[in-house]
Design a protein around this nucleic acid. Structure first.
Lengths: 149, 149
DNA sequence: TAGAGATATTCGTTTAAACAAATGTTTTTT
DNA sequence: AAAAAACATTTGTTTAAACGAATATCTCTA
């Protein structure tokens, strides 16, 4: 369904404004879908995002600041997000001996297992979203890059 | 800057996953920008969104449910969002005499004036985002429509 | 014309987001 | 070497989001 119909608006200030409204709408559409998948597992999208980043570096430890730098949203409260991840046993946390200001993070075994479990669910969801060809998906990504300038 | 560099990730499960990560990143990028503009005015994006919808119907009154239906995010707590808009004097609220379950909303004069004030600021921000041509913006919007299926 | 069911919004409570200020640590300057 | 500045993260507090349950009203059916 086209964005005009979904938000019942036919006139837009510009094609760019229309695209931006569509971007916001599509983002929320995606979040709603993902939330359904994540909720029964007791994990939020942001938490999942952090675990994904840590898995990418495993078995290295990574400073909190480095994680923040590459997060999709620059969550200012990474401390308490990590508190929650640690309570669930999904990550390990320790201060860096070489630089005691830094706190180092590493994904723990149960965290890796959780991501493992989620993989088929994620792929299943991805399959439902097969409306774009690989070429179109690439094009979309490139347009988003260009949008940000 | 391309998404690969921004999130320091070179391998993606699929072009679609890359596009989705880019979508999420770009959304937050936009929200961060918009927040700077909105914050000094004491209004949030969601509140702005509601005012915009009400202006589109002015001088009609609109049921709360109708507003929710066309919102970009389906905020479940429109009641308290409207409380805040009313406290600031930006909207009027009254129960529908014909159907006393419904609450009707209308943007008030100060709300219209606020939107008026914001217009040049929004256009100014839009000008900074001139990296896409009209055709490319249309294409982006169409791809997002197609993504949702 | 009760009463069951559907609809539209609100309220209560728990939890997390936002923001500013503070803490502890390292580096740089004088 | 002491003081100032910069850095990395944490903490405190206010505010809003999330979610389910509740209220109030209307509609339809028996």
């Amino acid at each position: 369904m086209k964005i005009e119909e979904l938000i019942k608006q036919t006139k837009f200030v510009s094609p760019l404004q229309k695209a931006m409204l569509n971007l916001i709408y599509t983002y929320h559409w995606h979040v709603d879908q993902a939330a359904e998948l994540f909720k029964p597992l007791g994990i939020t999208m942001q938490q999942f995002n952090v675990l994904r980043i840590l898995r990418g570096k495993y078995p290295e430890f990574v400073p909190v600041g480095d994680v923040k730098a590459v997060m999709l949203d620059k969550n200012p409260d990474l401390t308490r997000l990590c508190d929650r991840l640690q309570e669930k046993g999904w990550i390990e946390r320790e201060t860096n001996a070489c630089n005691r200001r830094q706190v180092l993070l590493r994904i723990a075994k149960p965290g890796l297992e959780l991501l493992e479990e989620m993989e088929p669910l994620l792929q299943q969801q991805a399959k439902k979203m097969d409306h774009l060809s690989d070429e179109e998906a690439e094009l979309l990504s490139n347009l988003l890059d260009k949008l940000r300038g």
